[in-house]
Design a protein around this nucleic acid. Structure first.
Length: 801
DNA sequence: CCGAATTTAATTTTT
DNA sequence: TTAAATTCGG
């Protein structure tokens, strides 16, 4: 029973739980991760379950990786003790490594541990071809995953190209948001129209329909689809559902307060095979084990809903169980923070109305008081933070830079602090902000890979067709995409049709041939290259690397290094996944976040948003920008439930701290560029008992860089005038131009081609001077040809018969 | 068709 | 302030 031995009563109850549902309410720092890993180890060691029967859902990829890591170590130690009766640390390195490798092969390899998105993307790689779409859309196993920016690009494209709307009137960002909302609530386009009645409901619904079709045409899925499609698939296909239901007998979910309705639906389908949880009785060798803390629910903007957690007991309470407490365990002992910090956290969160009653009980000493510093502006705030950290470092010989974190509400706040850190020469790392995989050069190379895996991915094709430069311009691309959309043929098939290209592209045809030949030659090597080697090949062969080297600027060098980093990421992926291929790597890249990047052991101060700090802990924590309108954010000031979420976010921030907590706020702040905004202290500060806080002297903010500028305001007004005098966008549709053509070919004309035989004109492209036509010949798809070059002759309809 | 120059809009939080 | 979009001259 070694996996139960070093746990407290409540933890033991949770870990030892065998069958049926269990809700674990786990306060911050109460050993929740420990409970999860020990439970998995326990299940395996006690032969309750085969590793392949276990599914563990984490909130980030990093958490998944850590869980695997800790589990492996746990099992390895256990193995060492049982087999050799020796403690793990007394074994030599070679031995240790060998045991870990055994554990990996026999156990951890077969576990499914990952985020909802990663897990269900994986499931779809098996079964997406069995999905039946209500509109008849379909996807193949090679599907691409579109991240938020890809998806937004697609929406933009549809708004401007297909619907011919002004993106200023119908904003792509908002439109994308409404689509996401529809997907998260499982609405059809018609339902979306009703929900958004009066707010562009009709348009939104139309856009939603087109967006879904466009995704299918690209054989691509967005983040929401990765959850929504599996729900529908499991609902509609009994065989598929049975398979996964019998496969995953023990399901564990971390950060359960941040699941959304779709994710909950997935859990229910897998656990009870479609039966209502209340009526489900077959819990033999089966369990669902969810761990969460409603007070740490901070993702409602992503449709997370902590009432799912609060409803767990009622939902899963079986008729035979009279006491619903039987399926709930509370972990309230906090092992992380000093009692001062805990008191502050508890008092703060008590101001929330919607919550499960829960108090964190301290197990540690009182510790030092919380220190609050008022500053003049964000620059002196940054200086004050650095001052504080340097003092802390100097006074505590056991505290290193790596033990400290600076947390803020918005990513933009990091800049001022970074500048100060640089000025003082303090090593630091920023996590979050722009994702590694969002960098341009990375997205470019990944677009090559995506296209190679999935030829229908026109979005990726368009991204790289002229990157690096191949002399293919805007007009050419427009003609090609017009042809593709009007004929309903994937862009790839247009660009690989030599005749069509010659006809449509004119003098950029050469560049296009160059491009298609490149892709086709790379395609031949796709199957027998590992991801890392293949990426290297792509970078070299497409000329991207050479272009960066030729540029010889500092920026280009940085890009080159990022690309090298991409190769390294692929190598790491290969190490972690035995059967790794390019499409697997692409999926992991699409779902990776910046917070996932491997912990460098370097001794550096960590900067990040409060959101990404969830699940972490630091001996010393600074929270900056505690001002009304910033934290809590201005959008939540008039919305009580949004304010409660901000408070939970603050609670998360405070409970990250083990020993020392420093709070900061400024009297005024430059939001962007110039203008100063006066700021009042955050309401949260007043919710922490005064006796826990030691106020600092206001730091004199004699920093330089202080210039009163009236200029920006004037230029701003000038710009406004410019905008208003700007011409309205033209709404003329391309069909007007087509109707204008004077001679020769019209849609419906019949013709005869020397080698293709008889055909009928279906589409016209380009204007009079440079005209191409699409012809449907008997027994083949439409061909695009140049009427002046092609060996064709017009024929009358009578001649046809 | 390309790159430089100009202008414009933007701040939550992330899988 | 900066990143991205748009315009303009070669």
């Amino acid at each position: 029973m070694s996996f139960l031995s070093d746990l407290n009563k409540a933890q033991q109850k949770a870990v030892g739980h065998t069958n049926g549902p269990l809700l674990v309410i786990a306060g911050a720092g109460s050993g929740k991760t420990k409970a999860l890993t020990h439970r998995v180890a326990h299940l395996i060691a006690e032969r309750e379950a085969d590793p392949s029967n276990i599914l563990a859902v984490t909130f980030t990829n990093k958490a998944a990786r850590e869980m695997k890591e800790r589990l492996e170590l746990l099992l390895a130690k256990n193995y060492a003790e049982n087999k050799y009766a020796q403690s793990w640390s007394s074994l030599d390195q070679v031995h240790q490594r060998q045991i870990r490798s055994n554990i990996y092969q026999s156990t951890t390899k077969d576990l499914w541990i990952g985020t909802f998105h990663a897990i269900f993307a994986r499931l779809l790689r098996f079964d997406i071809d069995k999905y039946l779409d209500p509109e008849g859309l379909s996807w193949t196993k090679q599907f691409s995953i579109y991240d938020e920016s890809d998806s937004l690009n697609l929406v933009k494209e549809i708004i401007t190209q297909e619907l011919q709307l002004d993106p200023k009137r119908f904003e792509p960002k908002k439109a994308r948001w409404s689509i996401s909302k529809a997907k998260n609530y499982g609405w059809t386009a018609d339902q979306l129209e009703k929900e958004f009645e009066g707010h562009n409901g009709k348009l939104s619904a139309e856009l939603y329909r087109r967006y879904r079709r466009a995704l299918a045409a690209n054989n691509a899925l967005d983040f929401d689809d990765l959850l929504l499609l599996p729900v529908q698939l499991l609902q509609q296909n009994e065989a598929v559902r049975n398979y996964w239901h019998s496969r995953f007998r023990h399901i564990l979910v971390d950060e359960y307060q941040d699941t959304n309705r779709t994710q909950y639906e997935l859990l229910k389908l897998l656990t009870t095979n479609g039966v209502s949880p209340k009526n489900y009785t077959n819990w033999k060798n089966r369990s669902i084990f969810v761990v969460g803390d409603a007070d740490q629910s901070i993702y409602s903007f992503r449709a997370a809903d902590f009432t799912i957690l609060m409803g767990f007991q009622d939902d899963f309470k079986n008729h035979s169980q009279e006491n619903k407490d039987k399926i709930m365990v509370k972990l309230e002992d906090n092992y992380r923070s000093t009692s001062t910090i805990l008191k502050a956290a508890n008092s703060l969160i008590e101001n929330n109305k919607e919550r499960i009653d829960k108090v964190l009980k301290a197990t540690r000493e009182e510790g030092e008081l919380i220190k609050l510093t008022r500053c003049d502006d964000e620059i002196s705030e940054a200086e004050a933070v650095i001052h504080r950290l340097r003092l802390t470092e100097a006074n505590n010989y056991n505290l290193k830079w790596g033990d400290m974190a600076i947390l803020y509400r918005t990513n933009a706040q990091s800049r001022a602090i970074e500048e100060s850190l640089v000025r003082w020469g303090i090593p630091y790392v920023v996590v979050g902000g722009l994702r590694f995989y969002d960098r341009r050069e990375i997205k470019d190379i990944l677009a090559y890979l995506k296209l190679l895996v999935n030829k229908n991915d026109s979005l990726s094709l368009l991204r790289i067709i002229n990157v690096p430069r191949r002399g293919i311009g805007k007009t050419t691309i427009q003609r090609l995409t017009d042809a593709s959309s009007q004929l309903g043929i994937p862009l790839w098939e247009i660009v690989t049709d030599t005749e069509a290209v010659r006809s449509l592209a004119g003098r950029s045809a050469k560049g296009i041939f160059e491009f298609t030949q490149l892709i086709e030659s790379l395609d031949k090597e796709l199957i027998n290259s590992s991801p890392s080697i293949f990426i290297q090949k792509v970078m070299e062969r497409c000329g991207y690397l050479n272009e960066l080297i030729a540029e010889a600027t500092e920026e280009a060098e940085e890009r080159r290094q990022n690309l090298q980093e991409l190769v390294n990421a692929a190598i790491q992926f290969e190490d972690e996944n035995e059967e790794s291929d390019v499409s697997g790597f692409l999926a992991s890249a699409a779902l990776a976040s910046d917070a996932d990047k491997k912990d460098t052991e370097a001794d550096r101060v960590t900067l990040m948003t409060l959101h990404s700090s969830k699940g972490l802990e630091f001996p010393a924590v600074c929270i900056v920008g505690l001002e009304q309108g910033l934290f809590p954010g201005y959008r939540s000031l008039s919305d009580p439930s949004a304010l409660e979420e901000e408070r939970r976010l603050c609670y998360v921030g405070i409970t990250r701290a083990k020993e020392q907590l420093f709070l900061f706020h400024a009297n005024e702040r430059r939001l962007w560029g110039g203008m100063r905004e006066p700021a009042v202290p955050s309401i949260f500060l007043s919710e922490i008992p005064e006796e826990l806080i030691k106020g600092d002297l206001p730091l004199s903010g004699g920093t330089s860089l202080r210039r009163q500028k009236n200029l920006p305001r004037l230029t701003r007004i000038d710009r406004k005038e410019n905008t208003s005098s700007k011409k309205e966008r033209s709404f003329s549709s391309p069909s007007n131009a087509i109707r204008r053509q004077s001679k020769e070919w019209n849609v419906g004309d019949h013709l005869i081609h020397n080698s293709f035989g008889k055909g009928v004109v279906t589409h016209l492209f380009g204007s009079n001077e440079r005209r191409s036509i699409a012809v449907k010949f008997d027994g083949m798809g439409p061909k695009i040809i140049d009427p002046r070059l092609a060996p064709i002759e017009s024929i009358n309809e009578e001649q046809l018969s």
